[in-house]
């Protein structure tokens, strides 16, 4: 293999194939099972808190939903702060990243990390580095969905 990137593009393709062969794949099936297990447990906890809100705490459905989110975010943030959530994440992957607790983790972890650079320009500026893009995409998607819905309603009468 020639080592010049510019002389022969085939080198890059051949090397890419070699790298693919040499790099171990993630154990996808095992990771899916772990994600299912941990994600499921987190959702069960959420469901339990929701039931608790509607039952003994006598909230209506809308308030109970908000209450559940708040409690789950609190749990995720706390576990991040005491250094447990990253360990769960290393094992569970998407199982702990996708639920709302993972959202809390993605906000609190940069907040802790950049605290040394100051409360405003450190924590304040970096707190959204991971969650920010997700929020931007979410808001944009809801805007598009809203416009489509508006057009549908006008046309459909």
């Amino acid at each position: 293999m020639d080592f010049r990137q510019d002389t022969d593009k085939r080198n890059q393709a051949a090397y890419a194939a070699m790298v693919k062969q040499a790099s171990p794949n993630s154990p996808i099936l095992l990771n899916c099972l772990k994600a299912f297990l941990v994600g499921g447990i987190i959702c069960c906890i959420g469901q339990f808190i929701g039931q608790l809100a509607r039952g003994p705490l006598e909230m209506d459905a809308k308030l109970a939903g908000s209450f559940t989110s708040v409690v789950m975010v609190f749990i995720g943030a706390t576990l991040t702060g005491v250094g447990i959530y990253d360990r769960i994440g290393t094992w569970a992957g998407a199982g702990s990243a996708v639920p709302i607790t993972g959202f809390a983790n993605s906000m609190v972890s940069p907040a802790i990390e950049f605290n040394r650079e100051g409360l405003i320009l450190g924590t304040g500026a970096k707190i959204f580095t991971i969650a920010g893009p997700v929020i931007t995409c979410g808001v944009t998607a809801s805007l598009v969905a809203g416009i489509i819905e508006l057009i549908r309603m006008r046309l459909g009468g």
Binding site: S26, I112, E113, I130
Partner: peptide
């Protein structure tokens, strides 16, 4: 880690390579 990748407390899986 903080310069090149993710915050330390971020719960993510690293690829095996």
């Amino acid at each position: 880690e903080r310069q090149y990748r993710q915050p330390l407390e971020m719960g993510i899986q690293r690829p095996p390579f």
